[in-house]
């Protein structure tokens, strides 16, 4: 092999390696994407039935029903246009309350109830998840952005995240 050929072979190997790595990573990303939907989109039936998604909005006042004998909770989230019923079994984050902006992760069931496996809220009473803020901004309601532009996004953590 001449040095020139060797250089070409080396460049080709590097290129092939980079391409393979990129392909593997991109396919791993696309398999693990979580799409965000607004309650209006959910009501319009835009959410695929068998896919884990995120739905965000404000917790509707007076909609929280806690089962006294178990961990089950039912509540509704709204984007000020439509309302989605959410069912969750587990411990809610500290700042979960009426009127709070939250994000629920889970699937929509046959009855149109969102079965949440995780509920996220921020550890700051003035915070609103950016997706929720954007949704409300489009509807012309509520604050347009998190009150603290610098609020640490680190704190928007699920209560039950396990690596």
């Amino acid at each position: 092999m001449t040095p020139r050929q060797r250089r070409f072979l080396g460049a080709f190997a590097v290129l092939a390696g980079v391409a393979t790595a990129a392909a593997v990573l991109l396919s791993a990303v696309s398999e693990n994407l979580l799409f965000f939907y607004t309650p209006s989109q959910v009501a319009a039936g835009e959410v695929p039935a068998d896919r884990t998604v995120r739905v965000g909005g404000l917790v509707v006042s007076g909609s929280i029903e806690r089962n006294p004998d178990s961990l089950a909770v039912r509540f509704q989230v709204t984007d000020m246009a439509r309302v989605v019923p959410v069912s969750y079994e587990g411990i809610l984050p500290d700042l979960f309350r009426e009127g709070q902006g939250i994000i629920a992760q889970g699937r929509i069931d046959a009855n149109g109830v969102f079965q949440a496996t995780e509920v996220l809220a921020k550890h700051d009473e003035n915070y609103m998840p950016p997706e929720v803020a954007a949704t409300l901004a489009m509807k012309g309601e509520g604050p347009l952005a998190p009150v603290h532009p610098d609020a640490r996004p680190a704190d928007a953590r699920p209560t039950g995240a396990q690596p």
Binding site: L33, L34, F35, F36, R54, E131, A134, A161, Q162, P163
Partner: peptide, 12 residues
């Protein structure tokens, strides 16, 4: 669209 990439991706 609005998406997030969860821990399953990173772990995998």
């Amino acid at each position: 669209g609005k998406i997030s990439v969860g821990p399953p991706y990173f772990n995998a």
